[in-house]
């Protein structure tokens, strides 16, 4: 029997949404079962959430005070002990999974497939290289497959499952050389960080001025979105350059990207090509941004912002 184990990402209280995306990828493998493991100090609440993910057979709950915080060197030996029952072990390709999985793989003498974006078969995968400018199709060598799942490539599995939760104890020696000191949540202020934001509202030269950018900020705050800008807007002095999205600025992959008054130079598009849904609002119907936008609206951006704010 071939089974896949997905490592749950959580903060002790809530399951991170990336887990359900990794489960979607695991389901694509077409194996006999998808199990999820929750490693926590007190993980029953998280395990219950994981049990609801559609397609999960069993949730393994491994509780240990050492698992209070997700420290790779401490979690890795526990996963290694569990891996013997599985043909595949996957984790989301978040900083959590990226930190943890290679440590597991190396101990077990296995290579790792990073950032799986498509499953072709149980051993053949697509993954991006060169910052997404090329995609390679790779075949894992025979034996245990260890990988991380590019979350932007998978929709979260839905939430109507009812897996059983099994408490497990694992026999592993845990190191004491790594101590968690603290976590300071990012962003600084209420507005999410551009690179981490699930939604981004972005303005271009069409916004017209620094003063006018207030409308962009206002909409962003209403949506709980980060604020981005095209290089033209940055060059024109409308907004500081740490907001710049594109080849020379930040490369981002939010679920929703709303571009206001951005023409869509290729340099800008290079920074958003992995966005989930792109919405473009521009007066110029010929603007290149419409060639990549999922939803385009030819209109005055200020009127659109006003109406959107009312509708939200």
């Amino acid at each position: 029997m071939s089974k896949v184990l997905v490592i749950a990402e959580h903060d002790g209280a809530n399951l991170n949404g990336s887990t359900a995306r990794a489960v979607s990828c695991a389901a694509d493998l077409g194996l006999d079962a998808v199990d999820v493991v929750v490693l926590a100090a007190d993980g029953s609440a998280v395990a219950e959430q994981a049990a609801k993910i559609t397609g999960v057979s069993t949730v393994l709950l491994v509780q240990n005070p050492a698992n209070e915080n997700a420290v790779a060197a401490i979690l890795a030996p526990q996963i290694e002990a569990l891996a013997a029952d599985y043909s595949h072990v996957l984790a989301p390709s978040t900083t959590f999974g990226k930190d943890l999985m290679p440590r597991v793989a190396a101990h077990l003498g296995r290579p790792q497939i990073s950032d799986i974006m498509r499953v072709e078969s149980a051993t053949v995968f697509d993954r991006p290289v060169y910052a997404g400018n090329a995609v390679i199709t790779v075949e894992a060598p025979e034996g245990l497959v260890i990988g991380t799942v590019r979350t932007a490539s998978y929709k979260a599995a839905s939430n109507d499952g009812s897996a059983s939760v099994e408490t497990r104890s694992v026999d592993a020696t845990l190191p004491s050389h790594t101590r968690f000191v603290g976590l300071e949540s990012g962003g600084g202020g209420d507005r999410p960080d551009l690179q981490a934001a699930a939604k981004v509202v972005s303005g271009g030269r069409g916004v017209g001025s620094e003063e006018n950018f207030k409308a962009i900020y206002s909409l962003a705050d209403k949506l709980g979105a980060g604020v981005g800008a095209s290089r033209a807007a940055v060059d024109a002095g409308f907004i500081p350059n740490d907001h710049q999205v594109g080849q020379t600025g930040k490369i981002i992959a939010p679920d929703l990207y709303m571009a206001f008054g951005i023409s869509g130079a290729i340099q800008h598009l290079a920074g958003i090509k992995d966005a989930g849904t792109i919405v473009a609002i521009n007066k110029d119907a010929d603007a290149p941004i419409f060639e990549v936008a999922d939803f385009g609206l030819v209109a005055d951006l200020f009127e659109v912002i006003e109406e959107l704010e009312k509708a939200l």
């Binding site: 017209g208 001025s209 620094e210 003063e211 006018n212 290089r231 060059d235 024109a236 020379t248």
Partner: peptide
């Protein structure tokens, strides 16, 4: 040559 905030012409150099 672009328009500035007041709609006046502005000469912009994108040295980048």
């Amino acid at each position: 040559v672009v328009k500035d905030e007041e709609g006046n012409d502005k000469f912009q150099i994108n040295g980048q």
